[in-house]
Design a protein around this nucleic acid. Structure first.
Length: 215
DNA sequence: CGACCGATTGACT
DNA sequence: GTCAATCGGTCGG
């Protein structure tokens, strides 16, 4: 069975026809979802504007995974990570940054995929405005190559924690513009200490894409 | 309650 | 390469 959810937006005299990913996509095993999210479009409706980018780098976090927030069970901070697949989990860290995850698998599993790199496609000027400390001197690749940079440019914070990705505010869509095939590379996850599953190759990214955070 | 530190970033040597 | 910023969650006493 193929589910197609088309959402058409008319904004600023442009029309967008999105094939929004269905719930069933997010209910698959986390590592599979992580890899399949690469190349898809992350879409954020921000007032009268659309912010769109291609997902180029992700990391998987699961239950029984010492690096995962869900490892010690549900708390007020991480409760959204235990929601049904297809929910946005945004957390606050380092006293100043937010990171965005896409919850996977069935409700209660505590699995998610962290967004680490996005190639900006639409609404780039607004993303630059949303970013702290972004000057035109910087290369465009510095705009959204990192989990906290993505949250700044797409304006994701506490309000967006728990957003259902099957709504019209924030969602992921098929990328029908993706003509050429791409190579997926994997590596250990970034910033995971020794003894916390640092050897798991659960970071996935598009090879040779300049919006990947760590080369 | 205090100490420690994080799925980070940007500035600086 | 090093390091400060900045705060809430977690853990030990």
């Amino acid at each position: 069975m193929v589910e197609n959810i088309h959402t058409v937006f008319f904004m600023k005299k442009k029309s967008f026809d999105f094939q929004k990913l269905p719930r069933s996509f997010y209910l698959q095993p986390t590592l599979r979802v992580a890899k399949k999210l690469l190349g898809k479009l992350f879409v954020r409706k921000c007032r009268k504007e659309l912010l769109i980018g291609k997902i180029v780098e992700v990391e998987a976090y699961r239950f029984n995974d010492k690096a995962s927030h869900s490892y010690r069970g549900k708390t007020k901070r991480n409760e959204v990570m235990f929601a049904e697949g297809g929910t946005l989990y945004v957390y606050f860290t380092y006293g100043m940054h937010f990171c965005a995850n896409i919850v996977t698998e069935e409700k209660g599993n505590g699995c998610a995929v962290l967004l680490r790199g996005i190639e900006p496609l639409e609404g780039i000027e607004t993303m630059k405005t949303n970013r702290n400390n972004y000057s035109e001197k910087k290369s465009l690749s510095q705009l959204t190559n990192g989990p906290a940079k993505i949250c700044q440019s797409f304006s994701l914070g506490r309000k967006e924690n728990g957003t259902d990705l099957l709504g019209d505010e924030i969602f992921v869509a098929e990328n029908n513009e993706q003509q050429d095939s791409f190579l997926i590379a994997s590596s250990p996850r970034i910033g995971i200490r020794e003894g916390y599953g640092e050897k798991k190759q659960w970071r996935f990214f598009l090879k040779n894409n300049r919006f990947v955070s760590v080369k």
